[in-house]
Design a protein around this nucleic acid. Structure first.
Lengths: 336, 336
DNA sequence: ACTTGACATGCAACCGGTTGCATGAAAACT
DNA sequence: AGTTTTCATGCAACCGGTTGCATGTCAAGT
């Protein structure tokens, strides 16, 4: 029916109310500057015409866009939706809108998306970025930037400190008398993966537990399933997977081989995004991705207000959530 | 370190290249209007200064914002991420950016978000909106609008036609000799739920199968788990759940009661968002939410180009994906 | 009554681009 | 050579707001 609809402008309201454009503007932004009657008159006219301030025009003249871009590698990875959701809500409460970008785990696309957002966002949040430190620095020079799950000197970030949770997990398994454990690893470029691997190795070493590592291609269900063969070949009786998706793949791979969890093999995931949704309910390392999303926005907003490129760090603690996928190994039952 | 960074403007580039601002503008938007040498000179200057066109300024003067808002009730519901992702990619390929809004299943918040997006988006996509028809009409009058999973006369929409898939599911179960089936329903306001319930009842009636319905509060894991008791009380030997999340809850509830799937009970989900990720792998009705996301953007872009508020409809077919949660009931094994 | 100040409002420039029209120079035509 | 056409470029207005400063009015101060 109707064609391109021209919005009602400040000028039309001004005419209708018999005032200058600037007064209309002030009626909306600083009403205390105007007499109450004038404000009322303007508001009445505005309501009547159905006036809505134009976000874009306002942004152009003030330089405050009221938008934030959030860029993630893969929306479909269950780690991210809670994070995005929390970020959204936090931004919302400060009257900011969120641009969402999905990079398909691809650094180039990440660059490209950032480019597309310039000139319409006040700040940028990069979650688990795949870009090089250099590129990230370059962007951080032009725009307030907060990283999630990436640690680069001089750039603010929200870090999920998996090391505690991983240590708890290894200790938990050791207490159950597992003598050999395997780490099913994630993307080598991932900061989280490196951190988890290190904590795994370190804790195991301290406890005198034997270790092995099985690499995977991507953090997803299929990779986990395919890793099962190599995992079993290590002779380990328990495993910790890079994330819950991978763990779920492992769970399925084990079931397909008739290997029962936790009776025959103990498994722990990371991120706790599937939680009790699997069966048996997956023991996992909780990492509150939603808190990360919320904190990242809060950090960014703070940087915007103080208008300086601070180098802040927000650490998020993790802890083990024990459910039903861990138990003593057979060897322990007989020997202990 | 650096304060608020002023971007390089067209004027600076113009000065550097010794041309008028308009020429710089044209060099980027319609280079064929300029002599190749001039374009080169301008581009060189722009590169050297690190010029990036300001999206906002451009939007203001052209009226083309290059942005689309996508509003969903709950990002964390696994039905949506694939949809959002597909929408993102489709928008991306047309150089559009996506604003994401999360309404927390709340109609008021939906209204509020839409308001915040006005004046910076060219179009709106509402996925499974909780708003009244009237409110949606009001918004559609001001902005090109596409609905997903909601059917309102006069407004374009992308509809996932579950009826075929549900009919297939009921038929599949009937062929396995199930004589009584239960539908674990979703939100009453949901268009999809009504559609599924109707298809369920109709097909069952046609096949002479006995039916029952169990209500749930929200489409999530817990609701499914809590529905198990009522579900079993119906005496049905098979069930179809409103969505996969609910089905997964049911799966867990059954397992907790020692009821084996599919040996003792057959279960089918909807949306196929968890797919083979559950164990046993869930038989489900595939509904390609990603296709819905892609199609919605395509539709919207088409409306923007033809610049008319067309009333288009895109139907998405569904079909049953049989995995490992359905089998003949005990009664059938003995009797047949 | 005359100055001073406070306050409400208007004027006009500006944010960073885009675009219709005017201009001038070179190319094509007679 | 004189005139018309073509083409590249510049000028200036405009998109819809915001904001520093100027102006006018009215009440308070002396």
């Amino acid at each position: 029916m109707s064609k391109h609809i021209k919005g009602v402008t400040i000028s039309q309201v001004a005419d209708a109310a018999g005032v200058a454009r600037s007064s209309v503007s002030r009626a909306f932004t600083r009403p205390e500057m105007l007499s109450p009657e004038t404000v009322n008159r303007i508001m009445a006219a505005a309501d009547q015409l159905g006036y809505r301030p134009n976000h874009t025009a306002r942004a152009l003249s003030t330089g405050r866009y009221g938008n934030i871009a959030l860029i993630v590698p893969d929306i479909a990875n269950p780690f991210f939706p809670p994070m995005i959701r929390a970020a959204q809500m936090q931004a919302d409460s400060a009257n900011f809108c969120i641009f969402l970008g999905n990079t398909e785990e691809n650094g180039e696309k990440e660059d490209q998306l950032i480019g597309r957002f310039t000139g319409q966002v006040e700040g940028l949040i990069l979650a688990s970025p795949r870009l090089s430190d250099e590129r990230i620095w370059a962007h951080a020079e032009k725009l307030p930037l907060v990283l999630i799950n990436r640690d680069i000197p001089g750039i603010s970030s929200v870090l999920i400190d998996s090391s505690v949770g991983v240590a708890e997990a290894v200790t938990h398994l050791a207490k159950l008398h597992h003598r050999k454990m395997v780490y099913i690893s994630g993307p080598p470029v991932s900061w989280s993966n490196r951190q988890r691997q290190e904590a795994f190795d370190k804790t195991a070493l301290a406890l005198g537990v034997e270790t092995a590592t099985v690499p995977t291609l991507r953090p997803d269900f299929e990779s986990g399933r395919k890793a099962v063969e190599a995992m079993l070949a290590t002779g380990a009786t328990a495993g910790i997977a890079f994330d819950d998706l991978t763990a779920q793949g492992v769970l399925t791979g084990l079931a397909e081989r008739g290997i029962s969890v936790p009776a025959d093999f103990s498994l722990i995931g990371c991120d706790d995004v599937l939680g009790s949704v699997t069966y048996p309910a997956l023991t996992s390392i909780s990492s509150q991705s939603s808190e990360a999303g919320q904190a990242a926005i809060a950090l960014l907003l703070e940087m915007l207000q103080t208008s300086k490129h601070a180098d802040l760090r927000h650490m998020i603690a993790t802890h083990l959530v024990v459910r039903n996928t861990t138990r003593e190994p057979h060897s322990a039952v007989t020997s202990g």
